[in-house]
């Protein structure tokens, strides 16, 4: 990854005049981006009076946890949290294994039909999920997998994006290393598992983050593949609750903000801690 462009004297000179303006502009933009999050986080702790106050109250005049209490009473949040977590962990584990396997074959094994398999991966990148859900639903109900973790995990167990990412990274592992191991009598699985995978740990980290997040935030398929509320994932439970006409309107917004905060906050924390991997992952997948 290249370092930000080196400073140019000419730019530095004019920067003296313009820089404050540019910083103000960037800060203003950032404020606009952050406003919905701030509003959500603060509203989650507001009393009913503050939630309906006009003009709007930013800082709660009295902090309260009542919205969270009411939310937990109406929605089994720990259960939805567990469902989302189990599905995301399984999807991520499958992708790490299967995508690296194919990535390795595409990058390092010169087999007949390799370019065709890579063509399949590229084609799979383009297929929109909406095209698949109708027969997938029929298939899953025939297999008895509606309302099961398997039904939620299997369609996402090997994503084309992951294969693409792993292939790009594994290409940079020197061939001499693998050739040496082969001469020493190592089998392909040993080479893959013990030599190549440890060398592409950064790529595995990137893939973990993207797959986990994709699964955590996934909505359409879990919505279709679950009928039993006990099997809902967090987004499905939250959306169903938000669109429920019987939901008590008074104080409902406070509960919804509390729920949204519980869904969004863990992800934002993980993102801030690991932010370097995100930007690198996107740049790699997009440009190579």
């Amino acid at each position: 990854m290249s370092v930000p462009t080196a400073s140019v004297p000419a730019r530095r000179r004019e920067g003296r005049v313009r820089r404050p303006v540019l910083y103000a502009l960037a800060s203003l933009g950032l404020l606009v981006m952050a406003t919905p999050f701030l509003w959500m986080a603060l509203s989650a702790f507001k009393t009913r009076q503050d939630l309906t106050a006009s003009p709007p109250v930013w800082i709660p005049s009295q902090w309260t946890l009542r919205n969270f209490g009411e939310l937990l009473q109406q929605l089994d949040m720990p259960r939805y949290f567990m469902n989302s977590l189990v599905v995301a962990v399984l999807v991520t584990a499958c992708n790490l294994l299967f995508c690296s396997m194919l990535g390795y074959a595409l990058a390092k094994l010169d087999f007949a039909g390799r370019s065709k398999v890579f063509g399949v991966v590229l084609a799979a990148l383009m297929v929109p999920g909406n095209l698949l859900i109708l027969p997938l639903y029929v298939l899953m109900s025939r297999l008895g997998l509606i309302d099961t973790y398997a039904g939620l995990v299997l369609p996402f167990a090997a994503g084309a994006f992951g294969v693409f990412l792993m292939r790009q990274f594994m290409k940079s592992v020197p061939d001499e290393l693998l050739e040496a191991a082969r001469i020493d009598g190592a089998g392909e699985w040993y080479i893959f598992w013990r030599i190549v995978l440890p060398l592409v740990k950064p790529a595995l980290a990137t893939l973990t983050i993207f797959t986990f997040l994709g699964s955590w935030n996934n909505f359409v398929w879990p919505l279709v593949a679950t009928n039993d509320p006990g099997k809902y994932t967090l987004p499905v439970a939250l959306a169903t609750f938000a669109n429920d006409p019987n939901r008590t309107v008074a104080g409902g917004n406070g509960m919804l903000m509390a729920g949204s905060l519980l869904v969004v906050l863990p992800v934002l924390v993980v993102f801030v801690v690991l932010q370097r991997h995100f930007t690198q992952g996107i740049a790699t997948a997009g440009l190579k």
């Binding site: 920067g15 933009g29 981006m33 952050a34 919905p36 967090l234 987004p235 969004v264 993102f271």
Partner: peptide, 29 residues
């Protein structure tokens, strides 16, 4: 990238944050 030279990461994280959040949650917000 070109306009500012300090706190770039901070700004980048801020502008990118909505991408990682659940569409359902932010749509409700």
């Amino acid at each position: 990238n070109n306009g500012i030279d300090r706190a770039r990461t901070f700004f980048r994280v801020g502008f990118y944050a909505p991408v990682v959040t659940s569409i359902v949650a932010v749509a409700i917000v």
